[in-house]
């Protein structure tokens, strides 16, 4: 198997790469992990990962600027329905649009909007932005889970660092949340696509288990 981590000039790519290699090795998953921005590599991959740090618009523009990458992504994820994982801004890019200081369209794969978090809106809790650190994962809707969470117990923490969050139009597409003054979307999913606001590559055992499940996932 081949897994591609898409390089669009942003992000802690090495971190993601190392974590995928470790998760594959520890779980005896035979997958070659590749960092690339070549459309041919996207076409040849079995699993597609879009990492991301930074601003929504910069990331979208970075993807758009790479010749053939958008088309290759659409073909692989929307037409061929290959398993796709977006991490942090890579997850947010699946939204219809992002509302930052400069608005930007997104991939529009999962309907919804990316907006600034407002942890002190209801009452001033003195909560800092970015939302940075380990926060508790919770199921969004009781009893509803996702195959990719098999074997991962609830009540564990994942590592977050972000100032914006993805509000899905359809609440069923928000799988996990976390609490930071307000409810924050922690994981989204639809068909062959999953996305995490948290960083599995930085979430120690929970994260490596999650990545292994993604590599074994057959949507």
């Amino acid at each position: 198997m081949k897994t591609i981590i898409i390089d669009y000039g942003s992000g802690n790519l090495r971190s993601a790469h190392r974590a995928f290699e470790r998760a594959a090795k520890d779980n005896k998953i035979n997958s070659q992990i590749l960092i690339s921005d070549k459309p041919a590599d996207i076409a040849a991959a079995d699993h597609i990962v879009l990492p991301g740090v930074g601003a929504f618009k910069d990331c979208y523009d970075g993807l758009s600027a790479r010749k053939g990458v958008m088309d290759a992504l659409h073909e692989a994820v929307q037409v061929q329905k290959k398993p796709f994982l977006g991490i942090c801004v890579g997850m947010q890019l699946m939204a219809t649009e992002g509302i930052e200081y400069k608005g930007s369209q997104g991939l529009d794969w999962i309907k919804g909007q990316v907006r600034a978090i407002t942890p002190n809106a209801e009452q001033d809790l003195g909560l800092k932005v970015p939302h940075m650190g380990w926060n508790l994962l919770a199921e969004n809707i009781r009893g509803r889970s996702h195959k990719i969470l098999d074997g991962i117990e609830m009540g564990l923490h994942a590592y977050f660092v972000h100032s914006y969050q993805f509000h899905t139009d359809d609440e069923n597409e928000t799988i996990l949340t976390t609490q930071y003054g307000e409810k924050i979307t922690a994981m989204v999913a639809k068909d062959n696509m999953v996305g995490t606001q948290f960083h599995p590559e930085k979430s120690q055992k929970l994260g490596l288990d999650f990545i292994a499940n993604f590599l074994n996932w057959k949507p």
């Binding site: 209801e122 809790l125 909560l127 650190g133 380990w134 926060n135 976390t178 609490q179």
Partner: peptide
């Protein structure tokens, strides 16, 4: 009281 209110609405952990 401030810290108590914060902890009720927030599951973010202090880091070491």
């Amino acid at each position: 009281q401030f810290m108590q209110a914060t902890q009720q609405n927030n599951n973010l952990k202090a880091r070491i």
